[in-house]
């Protein structure tokens, strides 16, 4: 008898690089939707980038959005089908660089969708270019001497911006280690619960490793998150309004 196995939605091996955090986050989203009994009715709007590998190996209905527009597509789907769970699954290059306007305006309007935002500090699929979330001094292919914040501005902490808005749920988790994965799963669950209760916009940022483009081993990448990334992006719940159907 099987006690614990991968969710049905993760029906084949994923296509991510070894040690990529997307695999864990895909599983958490699938587990949460299955636990809530929403896996047959959920619809995902998928971003361009490494996130676009998700629909190939994910057994929950997904729409491939144009680059940066996943939040806008999710809002459209939600307006047409208000009883379905609708989420967007985006990376940092997609949600905060090209799609910053869509991401922020969905939050400003407090649209009733859930955004799963994977922050790995670079544009992974295109070869590790600098993203808005790249840390100060971090080397990427377009900042080979390290990110100079005098020239490019400081790393974008989007939760600090969204905190000032009237949104239902904001949290930042991480996939470094068992405890943080469990906490991240709880945040994703609470975000979907907020959507189910029609509270409004819910946003979960997940700090994730990109060993390929960070030029580190998977283990060192996790250590880097624990020791360095969390200093810029602190984890925790930043906004919630439970039971308030505003």
């Amino acid at each position: 008898m099987v006690i614990k196995s991968k969710p049905e939605a993760c029906f084949v091996d994923n296509k991510y690089c070894p040690g990529c955090g997307h695999g864990i986050i895909n599983r958490l989203v699938a587990e949460v939707l299955e636990e809530m009994g929403e896996e047959k009715k959920a619809i995902g709007a998928i971003a361009v980038g490494c996130a676009s590998l998700m629909p190939d190996t994910f057994g929950i209905d997904c729409i491939q959005a144009q680059h940066g527009r996943a939040a806008a597509v999710a809002v459209g789907v939600k307006n047409c089908r208000p009883d379905n769970m609708v989420f967007s699954y985006q990376g940092d290059g997609d949600a905060l660089a090209i799609g910053f306007s869509e991401t922020m305006y969905a939050a400003i309007r407090n649209d009733n969708i859930t955004v799963i935002f994977v922050n790995n500090g670079n544009f992974g699929m295109t070869g590790g270019q600098m993203a808005p979330t790249t840390l100060e001094g971090q080397r990427t292919t377009t900042s080979p001497k390290g990110r100079d914040i005098m020239a490019t501005g400081a790393p974008l902490n989007v939760i600090n911006l969204m905190k000032t808005l009237d949104v239902a749920y904001l949290a930042r988790g991480s996939v470094d280690g068992n405890a943080n994965i469990m906490k991240t799963k709880k945040y994703i669950r609470e975000a979907f619960e907020a959507q189910k209760n029609k509270e409004g916009y819910s946003f979960v940022e997940v700090l994730s490793p990109c060993p390929t483009n960070w030029n580190k081993s998977p283990q060192d990448s996790m250590k880097h998150i624990r020791e360095t990334v969390v200093k810029t992006y602190e984890m925790g719940v930043y906004a919630e309004r439970r039971g308030d159907n505003a």
Binding site: M1, V2, I3, K4, S5, K6, C10, D13, N14, Y16, G19, C20, G21, H22, G23, I24, R27, G177, N178, I181, M182
Partner: peptide, 17 residues
């Protein structure tokens, strides 16, 4: 304990009775 199941990005582990 199932921790390996939880941290694995590639769904290698299962727990059976």
């Amino acid at each position: 304990c199932g921790i390996c199941y939880n941290v694995c990005p590639d769904y290698v582990f299962e727990i059976h009775e």
